[in-house]
Design a protein around this nucleic acid. Structure first.
Lengths: 110, 110
DNA sequence: TATACATATGAATTTTTATTCATGTAAACG
DNA sequence: CGTTTACATGAATAAAAATTCATATGTATA
């Protein structure tokens, strides 16, 4: 493993280890949208979405662009799809029947 | 994104979002070893290593096998290398000069 | 089978992270 | 330029994780 990667990995995975941020990324993978659109879709407060978008932007897992009075967020499709795919591959191989091996502990939300 | 994957991703990334566990995985990628060997190498208490190995095993990010009175742990090389590679790719492209873009927040250890 | 070695577990505490609520700021548009 | 819309930020609180220390369990072997 490359030196310094551990620290980057830590920030990275810490960033992803959150149901709200994962849900945001999932939505943004479907299509780019505004903070309020995300908040509405996910049934969460606008400020919570904003707070959670920040670390995603910082790590460049998401991008943003102003469009008129809105600000449109989009996912870093390359990285995000690669990561999700890695997890999906693992799950298929090691967590048959949809991660039932992880049963018992539920996600903080939904 | 496949349904149910969000939850698996959450457990997954939560598992990886920890400096001790990342360090453990890094060592185990070099070669399989016992709990005490890990503890010695990482300068951590044995119980801490044990506690942190548990979730890695649960998610099958690591495996274990008894060898005499020791228990030898090994990394799931396939998954771990894929994940690390994904992060490395991202870092190269989006975090030039070794993740300096992530500066300011240090890892809990290291 | 008593002892030592290797690891696991439990529970209390500390640390980190998330969430909420109130408020601040910035662009658009009348 | 004041008002509305859209979003960001700060600070307090709440929730979740990590760490530590004490102790239990399990295996080999004298």
């Amino acid at each position: 493993m490359k030196k310094g990667l551990t620290e980057i990995c830590y920030k990275f995975f810490t960033n992803l280890a959150n149901p709200t941020r994962l849900a945001v990324l999932e939505k943004l993978m479907e299509n780019p949208m505004s903070v309020n659109a995300l908040a509405a879709l996910l049934g969460q407060e606008q400020s919570m979405i904003s707070h959670n978008l920040k670390p995603l932007l910082r790590c460049k897992l998401a991008f943003s662009e102003r469009q008129g009075k809105k600000r449109v967020y989009s996912a870093n499709r390359e990285t995000v799809s690669m990561l999700f795919k890695a997890v999906e591959n693992h799950a298929e191989k090691y967590c048959p029947s949809g991660g039932r091996c992880l049963k018992g502990e539920k996600m903080k939300n939904g």
